[in-house]
């Protein structure tokens, strides 16, 4: 029951936000500032995580296919599992963990210090003022981050395959390019785009409805990352089914 009520409140929150964004002029300058901040905040950690997920993907693919004599297929495995699934999901969870939690805690602190009430008193719509720039910013920055993550992941898995596992580099690349096509990058960016919508709305929702005191800020931050990670994972399956299924290799 409680969860259902929370879901309803979230729906109302999204509706209010949509109305506020539609009826006010878009905050161009602040959106670009937010995009820059989100990108710069998330980039270093994303590079580290992508690189190490790529190394593990190569090890994993090698171990899965070696018993069948299919070591050569590591490139294909990296393309299917890494490019299509893991890279967008990783970007989503890292941006949720870094930028999403920061949004939640910033807005929660504004809520408990009554700065949001102060905005309303000054006749500035808080949804438009606080959420719209973050929303546009995250949508601008997530697709490029996904491309960077895919690139890093591929390079690191290539290095592990050739240097640690002793596979043939040309073969890796041949299987890799056979399995992916340029459109896959676009599909991954579409995925990331929807993940960005979820992360921003969920984080801002929890920040807006934060309870008072340091506990409240902690709880809001905590809830935002878990809820956005879980909903991105569920959405990821649906989108893979829609975008990639039936297309074959």
């Amino acid at each position: 029951m409680n969860a259902l009520a929370e879901f309803g409140r979230f729906g109302l929150f999204v509706a209010t936000f949509a109305r506020a964004s539609a009826t006010h002029p878009p905050p161009v300058r602040r959106s670009i500032e937010e995009a820059y901040r989100i990108g710069v905040l998330s980039l270093p950690i994303l590079l580290i995580i992508s690189a190490f997920v790529g190394t593990n993907l190569a090890l994993q693919g090698y171990n899965a296919f070696a018993p069948l004599g299919g070591q050569r297929l590591v490139g294909m495995f990296v393309a299917l599992a890494g490019v299509r699934e893991l890279a967008p999901m990783m970007v989503a969870s890292m941006v949720a963990a870094k930028a999403g939690t920061e949004m939640a805690s910033q807005i929660a602190v504004m809520r408990i210090r009554e700065q949001i009430d102060a905005l309303e008193v000054m006749a500035i719509n808080p949804h438009w003022f606080l959420i719209t720039p973050r929303f546009i910013g995250i949508l601008l920055v997530l697709p490029p981050l996904t491309v960077i993550s895919i690139f890093t992941l591929t390079v690191s898995s290539y290095l592990v395959s050739t240097l640690q596992l002793g596979l043939n580099g040309a073969e890796f690349l041949a299987y890799f390019t056979d399995t992916t096509e340029p459109m896959d990058l676009v599909y991954c960016m579409i995925k990331a785009f929807f993940f960005g919508i979820i992360i921003c709305l969920v984080s801002c929702f929890y920040g807006f409805n934060s309870k008072s005191g340091p506990n409240g800020v902690g709880e809001a931050t905590n809830a935002s990352v878990v809820v956005s990670a879980v909903s991105c994972a569920l959405l990821n399956y649906l989108m893979s089914e829609i975008l990639f299924s039936g297309r074959g290799l």
Partner: peptide
């Protein structure tokens, strides 16, 4: 203060995942 708690939570997730 309260902002510090938010930052601690944020850093926890990011640093431990990395």
């Amino acid at each position: 203060g309260a902002a510090g708690v938010g930052k601690a939570v944020n850093d926890t997730v990011v640093i431990s995942v990395t």
